[in-house]
Design a protein around this nucleic acid. Structure first.
Ligand SMILES: [Mn+2]
Ligand SMILES: [Mn+2]
Ligand SMILES: [Zn+2]
Ligand SMILES: [Zn+2]
Lengths: 141, 141
DNA sequence: ATCTAATTGCAATTAAGTCTCAATTTCAGT
DNA sequence: ACTGAAATTGAGACTTAATTGCAATTAGAT
């Protein structure tokens, strides 16, 4: 898996070690698709044969974000939500305030428009996050 | 102040009471401009002659958000950030990764485009937050 | 003035996430 | 493969924003 190589290189470059626990977290993160909360990830790891403490899960998650393999999608009332990024292209999110469902979308027009706005403000944009909140199809009244 | 009338009507319509504490929170929220954290608001209220417990500050803040006089701008690692909204129009932010400068912007086109995207996904958008990160004019290389 | 439901303050509680530190593990050097 | 320094781990204590239960208080309708 490419993500293992990326992680290994990242760790090596910082004088950090590739431990069983870190491997377990990375592998669990890439074992399913979609968004996840740290506690959910932790419970999956516990029930998967491999092991890593809650502290290690959180610590490894930070490393994965730092090296770009994982991205923090948003922050809810409860906590953070993440997603793995390798092999996935850029997109933004709509989040349902009622049921919490997250809908991914991408719009070329919207990306272009943002470039224009940056230009107009003499700003060199390197990343962005657009989060639309409201009610999803199921929850509209 | 218009915001007092709005709040009074909102409370009345729900069978809720306009207390000294609620009045103190509203008045403090509108006594300054910019973003704020609940704890900062609480400390301002404590040092302002009026009184309201921490619990009441949080409870009133929820009511103010519910009636549209206050908006939750974002959630940071520490907690929520709010701003009062009456008399202020919607805008989004560019944040410089180097110097931290925050540039506010608004684009009618961008708002329209988001409406279209919501429609396409059968999503009823009620709010959004777009945050563009990069380098500002001063910090570009 | 009376009455009742709403509200308050306090302290206890919750929960995500961080931190401490002794014991363990990695891995580069040999 | 052995060694040792440095990194990492797990368990649970801790931090901190925010919520909640409840007895005492208060708003506001009649
Ligand atoms: Mn996503
Ligand atoms: Mn702003
Ligand atoms: Zn929904
Ligand atoms: Zn700058």
């Amino acid at each position: 898996m490419m993500e293992n190589i990326i992680f290994r290189n990242f760790l090596g470059g910082k004088g950090l070690k590739l431990t069983k626990e870190r491997t377990a977290v990375l592998s669990e993160v890439y074992s399913f698709h979609g968004h996840f909360e740290p506690e959910y990830l932790y419970s999956r790891i516990k029930g998967s044969g491999s092991k890593a403490s809650r502290a290690s899960v959180y610590r490894t998650l930070s490393l994965l974000v730092e090296c770009g393999l994982v991205k923090r999608v948003t922050r809810t009332d409860k906590g953070n939500i993440y997603e793995h990024t390798y092999g996935h292209s850029h997109h933004d999110h709509m989040i349902c305030d009622i049921c919490g469902e997250i809908i991914e979308f991408f719009s070329e027009k919207l990306e272009k428009l943002q470039d224009e706005i940056c230009e107009k403000n003499s700003f060199i944009g390197s990343s962005h996050a657009l989060e639309i909140r409201g009610r999803c199809k199921k929850c509209r009244m």
